[in-house]
Every structure is written in C-alpha cells, then in structure tokens.
Design a protein around this nucleic acid. Structure first.
Length: 377
RNA sequence: GUGAGAUUAGUUCAGUUGGUAGAGCACCAGAUUGUGGUUCUGGGUGUCGUGGGUUCGAGCCCCACAUCUCACC
C-alpha cells in the first residue's frame, strides 16, 4: 500500500493525496461509509459506487466475528466476495465496540474478554487473534486492536490505557508480520494513536505508533465525549508531528460535515462516521444549506425537491413532504432515501474539499461553508 | 321497546372520602460522532358527552337528554 501527497493548501494544513490499494486507488481527503456487518444499511452497492461515489467502505471485526462468523467468511472467500464489493474495505478491530458498547467486559494481560450482544456467549480478543480474524475478513486496511479511552478520562487513567494500547500494538504488529494475506491482494494495518486530551500522551502515542506504521496511521479516541475544541486542539498537536509524505492520516469516527472540514484544514485525510446513515435513518438530513429534521411538521406540505443542490438522484425525484410522510409512517424507504442522500452529500463534501485544496482557496471556502452547513433549516 | 354498563388528551384508559385531571402509545420538539434498524431528553396538546341541580367547591353526588355497547322482548 502506498500513499502519495499530491497537493498542499498554502493557507492551512489541508492536503490532497492518493492511496493505492489492492482494490484500486482512493483520492484523499475521503469519507468512508460505515458498513458494520457487511452492509451499508439500506444502500445498494450499485448506488454506493454509481450514485454516491464511495471509494472505500468499512466493516467491523467485532460484528462480523460474531455474525456470520469466521467459518462463513472464510468459506465465502473473504468479505469482498461475500458482499460483492470490489473496492477497498477497511475493518475496525472491534476495540471500540468491546469498550464502549458492551457493559460486560474484562481486561486481562492477554486481551479483553466480553459477552456477545447477540447471545451472551463469552469471547476473548487478543492482538494476535484480532490479526487472524481481520486476515480472514480480508480487509485491505486492518485496524490495530486498541482501547478507546473515554474523552473525560483523567491523566492517570489515560496514561495506563495508553500503555495497554502500546503493548497491544507491538503484539499486533508482530503477528501481522508473521502472517500472510489469505487472498490474492495486499493487506496493511494502521496503528492507532490514543492519549485522550493530553498533549504529552498524544505525543508519546504517536512516536510509538510511527515505529509500526506502513502507509497510514489513525487518530483514535476523539469525538468520544470531549469538547469539539479539544478534538481540534489534539489534531493540532498530532498532525504536525506526523510525516508530511507517505503516510495517510485517518481520524476515526468523525464526524459532522463541519468536523470534516475543520479536521481537513488541520491535516486529516480519511474519515468514517455513522452519522450520515444512523442520523439519516432517524430523519436528519445534511445539506449545503444546513441540517433538516425531516420529521418536523413544517415539511408536511413542502412539495419542493428534497435537496436542489444535492448530487444524488433521490434529491431530485422525491419531495420533502413525501420523505416526511415516509418517516412519520415508519417506512423503511425513508431510511433508504435519507441514507442515500446523506452519504452522497458527505462524499460531495470531501470532493469539493479536494477541489478547493487543488484550487488553492480551501481556507476561505471552508470558513464560508462551515457557516452554511451548520444552519438549521 | 325494556334493563344494565359506558362516555375524561389524537387513541386506549386511570382518576382515592367531592378540592378545576394523568399514564402508555400517538403527536410536537431537541440530542445522537471507530452503528445493537436504535436509544435518550423535553413538551400535555383537555368545553371531563350536553343541559340543569345540590354544594363554598362537581370528572366524582342527583335529574333530564344524546350517543355507543351488551342482554332481553
């Protein structure tokens, strides 16, 4: 895997680049739709490619390990074949799920044990078996197993948590280099920088993680309860200390469209977030002119097209009133339309960002755009 | 036609010895950041069927009427 920086914005840390994978190249900055269990909920793969323009999607190791399970994934020949997606896939290790979603989990020197949210069965993730699992899934980009430290943790907790993440990273890297891909394309893995909101810990984390990084590195443990300004501050601490060339920067789990633009201006290249799909399923639409809650009564008789400036076909063939009706009626079609629109919008946001970085007017454009897209309609 | 029961929020219903009413769902609004097709937070939106009566005071007690349900001629 190879990352090449192609353009840099003169007035900010924003940059463009190209990430080459075994399933094609990715233009950065990029947003990656989340497809936890092998499906971007409610969206056809055809639309992901042709309408939305997704260049890479996510899968989740925790969820896929529990269901359908490794036997099925192995028999299918990996996740790409299983879900019929021929572009790159990135898998989260499942560390976030194990630490944030499951109440019942226990840390051991070996790894972490947890109970399945499906049937309560007990399982253990270790850095070693996590590598093996992501080999079977066949992700182009595998994520290291880490502990996602809460945003409000004190320094003592965050420091101990970081030690665990560092130890697991070393073991993860060792296993990764001892093993080979199971399928006929290259795999790489990204280390994850933790350290909560503490400058010293973030610096310690990135210096350690860089020893194990190949073409990319992730910034984790942000947008997990800390103020947004703290998140930006941490990006300003971390990004300048990363190599300018050859290493793509992935901010995990972020965020709102405004978060994306602010992070891009601070040097981030890759994003993923459940917000366009999850919030979309709940009636929230993101647009260039602001955010709409499609459940609101004010759309009841608004027969204008969904989003006149939208790039998706759904923006022009359905009306606001119709989508509100579908949401109020609990129709699954509502979730499908909203997901399609939001993902198309997110991909349009990073597409426009790339264009403005290349045009050299990114900072000015970002300031104006953030004001527009954060309005409430 | 006779008898019994019922009538309170959009809906299903609660409402103590009489002190101008409250739950679920729905609805309205807000949250949601490495996805448990969610979850959470806030909001009561009312001519207590109608008209009288008793009472300092009636959703509650009394009378009449209306409507609905059931049973019986």
């Amino acid at each position: 895997m190879k990352f090449t920086r192609t353009f840099s914005d003169p007035s900010s840390a924003a940059r463009c680049g190209v990430l080459e994978t075994g399933h094609g190249t990715i233009q950065t900055p990029i947003f990656m739709p989340v497809g936890t269990v092998g499906s971007v909920k409610g969206v056809y793969h055809r639309d992901l490619k042709e309408d939305i323009g997704a260049e890479i999607i996510l899968g989740n190791t925790y969820h896929l390990y529990l269901r359908p399970g490794l036997d099925v994934l192995k028999a299918a020949g990996g996740l790409h074949k299983f879900e019929n997606w021929d572009r790159p896939i990135l898998t989260d290790s499942g560390g976030f799920q194990v630490f944030s979603l499951t109440g019942i989990r226990k840390l051991t020197p070996e790894g972490c044990t947890f109970q399945s949210h499906i049937d309560g069965s007990r399982h253990t993730f270790t850095p070693e078996n996590n590598v093996d699992t992501q080999r079977i899934i066949g992700a182009d980009i595998m994520m290291a197993l880490d502990e996602c430290c809460p945003g409000d943790a004190d320094h003592d907790y965050a420091a101990k948590s970081l030690q665990l993440t560092k130890n697991w990273l070393e073991r993860y890297a060792r296993r990764f280099h001892e093993t080979e891909p199971l399928y006929d394309y290259e795999q790489t893995f990204f280390p994850i920088i933790q350290g909560c909101t503490y400058r010293d810990l973030r610096t310690e984390a990135l210096e350690h993680a860089l020893q194990f990084a190949d073409a990319g590195i992730a910034i984790g443990g942000l947008a997990v309860g800390e103020p947004t300004e703290k998140m930006y501050e941490m990006l300003e601490v971390v990004c300048p200390q990363l190599p300018a060339d050859g290493m793509v920067r992935y901010l995990m789990g972020v965020g709102t469209p405004a978060n994306l633009l602010e992070a891009i201006s601070r040097g981030v290249d890759m994003f993923d977030c459940v917000m366009p799909t999850r919030n979309g399923r709940n009636g929230m639409l993101f647009t260039w002119n602001g955010v709409m809650n499609m459940r609101n009564a004010k759309w009841e008789e608004d027969f204008s097209e969904l989003d006149p400036s939208g790039t998706s076909f759904v923006d022009h063939c359905y009306t606001k009133a119709y989508l509100r009706h579908l949401f109020i009626s609990g129709e699954m079609f509502a979730a499908m339309i909203a997901s399609e629109h939001n993902l198309a919008f997110y991909l349009d946001v990073v597409r426009q960002a790339r264009a403005h970085i290349k045009a050299g007017d990114f900072s000015k454009w970002k300031e104006e755009t953030v004001k527009r897209i954060t309005a409430r309609l």
